[in-house]
């Protein structure tokens, strides 16, 4: 399935400290490697640092110490313009709230990253249409965000994230505002895209049911990765790191609930 074996993103000893005076250690020496085509979920309690970690991977935030390697290149100290370029070319974002620009139609919103990348309008429009069809919105190309449902808007946001063929798509609680049924649909869509075009996804969620649809779950508590689980057959295998909770460091089978 993976046509590339190399790690697409590598975090090395990454720390982020907020505030002056009262220090908040949002990330504390996180190291992780993610391969191309992986479907990863980051879980953890609120305030654990999972969003901070995602912002680091998304090059939206800079680490206090440590390194981020994107496709083998250290980007942790890149200039704002260089990071902007990388975000445009290599990364796609889907947020909890769809963040579509309300004045623009669905297809125009999807075109936006391509226009930022200076692609021609016709080319962008063609690809925008393709992508919207791929997410099942081929008939809503010219609807504005306020004419679409929450789930539909989030699918537009997914299409937009894919616009420039990014190496990684990251999602922050991307189904947080949706009902269970719409959430399932979105996850199934991502799963499908992951398998069909080998798209790498890194998602933050607090919903374990959704996290279990992925291939790899990173549990983060107090800025540290405390547990890592990989899909194996129908269940997950926890790594040696898992020292807390019911896992208790043992290999566990997480049963799936219906």
């Amino acid at each position: 399935m993976n046509n590339r074996d190399d790690d697409i993103i590598v975090l090395k000893d990454l720390s982020k400290i907020y505030g002056n005076g009262v220090e908040v250690r949002a990330l504390d020496g996180v190291s992780v490697k993610i391969k191309a085509g992986e479907f990863v979920a980051i879980v953890g309690p609120s305030g654990s640092g999972k969003s901070t970690l995602l912002n680091m991977i998304g090059l939206l935030d800079t680490p206090s110490s440590g390194h981020i390697f994107l496709k083998g290149i250290d980007v942790s100290r890149a200039s704002p313009d260089e990071r902007a370029r990388l975000r445009n070319q290599e990364l796609g974002f889907v947020f909890q709230y769809h963040h579509l620009i309300p004045e623009f139609t669905a297809v125009e919103n999807v075109m936006m990253p391509m226009l930022i990348a200076n692609k021609s309008k016709t080319e962008a429009h063609k690809r925008g249409e393709e992508l919207l069809r791929a997410v099942g919105l081929g008939d809503r190309l010219h609807s504005r965000p306020n004419q679409l449902s929450g789930g539909q808007n989030q699918r537009v946001a997914v299409a937009r994230a894919l616009a420039n063929n990014p190496s990684i798509v990251i999602g922050d609680e991307l189904t947080g505002n949706l009902d269970t049924k719409s959430s399932e649909l979105i996850y199934n869509l991502l799963r499908e895209l992951n398998q069909k075009i080998n798209q790498t996804f890194i998602l933050v969620t607090h919903d374990m049911t959704l996290a279990e649809k992925t291939d790899r779950i990173l549990r983060i508590v107090d800025g540290k990765i405390v547990c890592e689980m990989r899909r194996k057959d129908d269940g997950f295998v926890a790594s040696d790191l898992c020292v807390m909770g019911e896992d208790d460091g043992k290999v566990v089978q997480i049963s799936r609930e219906n």
Binding site: G58, R87, N88, F93, I101, I116, R160
Partner: peptide, 10 residues
């Protein structure tokens, strides 16, 4: 914010 996330420069 979203424009920046999509790679729009400052």
């Amino acid at each position: 914010g979203i424009l920046m996330a999509m790679g729009a420069k400052r």
